[in-house]
Design a protein around this nucleic acid. Structure first.
Lengths: 211, 211
DNA sequence: AAACTTTTGTTACTCGGTTGCATTTTACGT
DNA sequence: ACGTAAAATGCAACCGAGTAACAAAAGTTT
């Protein structure tokens, strides 16, 4: 899946990249995103500052790299849906499944490290901003996938925007639920109920347009 | 409507604020947001750099101040709707009305200055980011207003997210329509049709929840 | 091993944004 | 009208993110 041009150099690059991201996140979690300078991160990772920026175009990307693998997930789900299944049904089923798996993207993951990570992201405006821009790309990709199903292109864009927006609300709700304590059966039920409500709201209108 | 503590000082402050914003936008439109430094703006407005930042917390706010009056418009529309009218119906009617008025917020305004302004915003990532954060506040306010109607709070948050997201798509679509030329009858019709489609998609699901 | 390419480090820079303090300007009591 | 407190400004110096230029040190290829 990933590029594999030449052996040794590429390996070292991957390693430096990972080291940078990991030491950065560790420092950020320890003392706060804004309280740690990139110079410190570079020093801790034993790399010069320009090198750091060759790997990550901005400080925020040191953090969000970890999330980047989920890029375009919604679009993939739509494209990989079972024959005969509507895009929305596929997305709903997928979301419920991720919920059961306590996938961090759903917000429903009480592993301390993940929780601390989310706290940091939600409490740091610049990280939120960057995250929204990732979301915009997600939305664009989803709109494309929906349009491929033969739906009206305008409708596809509108639907994609609604779906992505709703997912964020759900994730945030779930994250808030975890403020009170760990994932219990009741919390899981509430999360599923929230998702059902969301897809119910989405569904009625979108179903009429074949989505 | 605005604060009016003491007469003369406040007036001068308002004037400096406006001068700053106007000279900034003029310079930005002329040479691009990233190609003009805040020091230049401050100099052009005959003000020191710290003073500039006392008025505007960030460079982006020099631009977006102009848009800030629309903050919370959706929430206001919901709160000010006619008795018996559903929130969604009020929002739909309002949007169509703004469309007919060629309100810049709908994207359907071909006044050259407005057009250039939007081009700048859409082509400058940092401005987009700031704009999204304004939108988040809009969304929060709308959710609050919807919850006041007695709807389920979770549903209100979900609906608000959908509505705000959809509005942005509509505005972007309209802006793209204007890339080809001025607002003709056909363009206006298309914009109205787009809005109708959007509210149709929203409506089915939301109506069932009393929104 | 030599020649070539890619990556890195060093230094120095620009720019957005802040801080501390002295200076001016406005408001207000007498 | 005058003097004083409060607020706003300017100045200078500073911090941190991000970049440019160039030299040094890899890794790759023959």
């Amino acid at each position: 899946m990933t590029e594999e041009t030449t052996g040794l150099r590429e390996l070292k690059k991957q390693r430096t990249r990972q080291t940078l991201s990991e030491t950065a996140i560790a420092l950020f979690l320890e003392r706060g995103f804004d309280q740690v300078s990139v110079a410190e991160v570079a020093a801790a990772a034993e790399v010069s500052k320009p090198t750091l920026f060759r790997y990550f175009p901005a400080k925020e990307d040191l953090v969000l790299d970890r999330i980047a693998d989920h890029q375009g997930e919604a679009a993939r789900v739509v494209r990989g849906r079972a024959p005969g299944e509507s895009p929305l049904a596929a997305l709903r089923a997928h979301f419920h499944a991720r919920l059961d798996a306590r996938d961090p993207v759903t917000g429903l993951c009480d592993v301390p490290a993940v929780l601390a990570f989310r706290d940091m992201v939600y409490s740091t405006p610049s990280l939120q901003g960057r995250l929204m821009r990732y979301a915009a790309e997600d939305e664009r990709a989803l709109a494309e996938a929906l349009a491929e199903t033969g739906a009206d292109e305008a409708a596809a864009r509108l639907a994609a925007a609604q779906i992505i927006a709703v997912h964020h609300v759900l994730a945030r709700d779930n994250w808030q639920r975890l403020a009170s304590g760990p994932v219990t059966a009741a919390v899981l039920d509430a999360a599923h109920a929230g998702a059902e409500l969301a897809y119910e709201l989405l569904g009625a209108g979108l179903a009429a347009r074949g989505l």
